[in-house]
C-alpha cells in the first residue's frame, strides 16, 4: 500500500491493463512523446512503444471514431481527450456511434472503448475550459459514465472500465490529479455501478461525486464539529448506471438528502437522483431534497466570481442545515 497521486493511480491502471491485455492501447493528443498533457500517460510510450501509445493530430472527432472502429474490430482502445471540453467535437462518435452500435446491430457489435480525460473546472480557465459534462453522457443509454474522486477509486475504476465491454465515459477530476491517497500495489478493481460511502452518518445524506466528494467531506467535518450534525457522504463513483440502492438505503437511515455536483443544475446528475429518491424513498423523506450545483452561468474568469460559481463547503453546510431544519 503506497500513497500516490490520483494521476499516478491512473497511470498504474493504464500500465497494468496494457500489460495484462495486448488488445489495450492508448490514443490521444500528446499521450506519447509529450508524456500526456496532464502526465497521466507518463512513461507509457517508453514501456509499450508507439504501436500502443498513439499520438494523434488535433482531431477529436476523427480519433474518437478511430477508437470506436478499432473497438468494433475487437480491440480495447483507451481514447484520451486532453479535456472533456474538447471532446464536444467528438460527441457524435461517442453518442451516435459508440453508444448505439451494440443496439442497432441487434447485439452483434459491442464497442469496448474507454473515453477518458479531465473534466470540471480548474482555476481561472474561464467558460470554455471549465465544464462538467457527466450529465450529458449519463443521459445516453449505451454509455457508462464514471467519475472517480480518489486515487484508489481512480485506479480500480479505470481498470474495470477498460475491461468492460461497453463504451465508458471516464471523467477524471482536473483538480484531483495531484491529490494523494492510499493505493494498493497489487491487483484490484472497483466495480462500475457501485457507490461508496466515504463517511458514515445518521442525520443527512450528501450525494456527490468526483471533486465534490472532498467538498462534501469538508462540510461533513465542520457539521460534526461545529453543529453536531452527522453527515453521511455517498460518493456515486459511477454516474451511469447509478447506484440507486446505496443512495436510498442511506436516505432510509437519514431521511434527508443534499446532492452536490459541479455541473449546471438543469437536468443535472442531481436531478436524476432527486427523481429516483422521490420515487423509491418517498416515505422516508423528512424534507425536500436540495441540490448544490455549479452556478447556472458560463464559468467566469475572475477569481472571486469563479469561486462563487462553484460548490463549496459553506454551500453544502447551508443546504444540510436547511434539510435538517436547523435554521
Amino acid at each position: 500500500m503506497g500513497v500516490i497521486t490520483y494521476r499516478d493511480a491512473l497511470n498504474q491502471a493504464l500500465r497494468d491493463e496494457m500489460e495484462r491485455d495486448p488488445d489495450v492501447f492508448l490514443m490521444g493528443e500528446e499521450v506519447g512523446v509529450y508524456q500526456g498533457a496532464y502526465k497521466v500517460s507518463r512513461g507509457l510510450l517508453e514501456a509499450f512503444g508507439d504501436r500502443r501509445v498513439v499520438d494523434t493530430p488535433i482531431a477529436e472527432l476523427g480519433f474518437a471514431g478511430v477508437g470506436v472502429g478499432a473497438a468494433m474490430a475487437g480491440l480495447r482502445p483507451i481514447i484520451e481527450f486532453m479535456t472533456w471540453n474538447f471532446a464536444l467535437l467528438a460527441i457524435d462518435q461517442v453518442v451516435n456511434s459508440a453508444a448505439k452500435m451494440y443496439y442497432m446491430s441487434g447485439g452483434q457489435v459491442p464497442v469496448p472503448v474507454v473515453f477518458r480525460g479531465p473534466g470540471g473546472s480548474a482555476l481561472q480557465l474561464a467558460a470554455q475550459h471549465s465544464q462538467a459534462f457527466e450529465s450529458w453522457y449519463a443521459h445516453i443509454p449505451g454509455l457508462k459514465v464514471v467519475a472517480p474522486a480518489t486515487p484508489y477509486d481512480a485506479k480500480g475504476l479505470l481498470k474495470s472500465s477498460i475491461r468492460n465491454n461497453n463504451p465508458v465515459v471516464f471523467i477524471e477530476g482536473e483538480m484531483l490529479y495531484n491529490t494523494k491517497g492510499e493505493v494498493p500495489e497489487g491487483e484490484y478493481t472497483v466495480p462500475l455501478g457501485k457507490a461508496d460511502i466515504k463517511r458514515e452518518g445518521t442525520d443527512v445524506t450528501v450525494v456527490c461525486h468526483s471533486k465534490t466528494v472532498s467538498v462534501a467531506l469538508k462540510a461533513a467535518e465542520r457539521l460534526a464539529e461545529e453543529m453536531d450534525v452527522s453527515t453521511e457522504v455517498v460518493d456515486l463513483r459511477t454516474i451511469r448506471p447509478l447506484d440507486v440502492d446505496t443512495i436510498t438505503q442511506s436516505i432510509t437511515k437519514t431521511n434527508r438528502c443534499v446532492i452536490v455536483e459541479e455541473g449546471w443544475p438543469f437536468c443535472g446528475v442531481g436531478a436524476q437522483v432527486v427523481d429516483d429518491v422521490q420515487r423509491l424513498a418517498f416515505d422516508h423523506l423528512d424534507a425536500p431534497l436540495i441540490r448544490v450545483t455549479g452556478a447556472d452561468v458560463p464559468m467566469p474568469y475572475n477569481k472571486h466570481l469563479e469561486r462563487a460559481a462553484k460548490p463549496n463547503p459553506d454551500k453544502v453546510i447551508a443546504a444540510v442545515r436547511q434539510v435538517a431544519y436547523l435554521d
Binding site: 492501447f25 504501436r51 472527432l61 476523427g62 480519433f63 474518437a64 471514431g65 478511430v66 477508437g67 470506436v68 472502429g69 478499432a70 473497438a71 468494433m72 474490430a73 475487437g74 480491440l75 482502445p77 457524435d92 462518435q93 451516435n96 456511434s97 452500435m101 442497432m104 446491430s105 457489435v109
Partner: peptide
C-alpha cells in the same frame, strides 16, 4: 459493420477497423 445514418460519421470508423487490422 453497418449501416450508419449520420453523413460522414462512419468514415473514422473505417480508419478504426483498419487501425485494428494493422495493430
Amino acid at each position: 459493420l453497418g449501416g450508419h445514418g449520420i453523413v460522414g460519421s462512419h468514415i473514422p470508423l473505417a480508419a478504426g477497423t483498419a487501425f485494428a487490422a494493422r495493430y
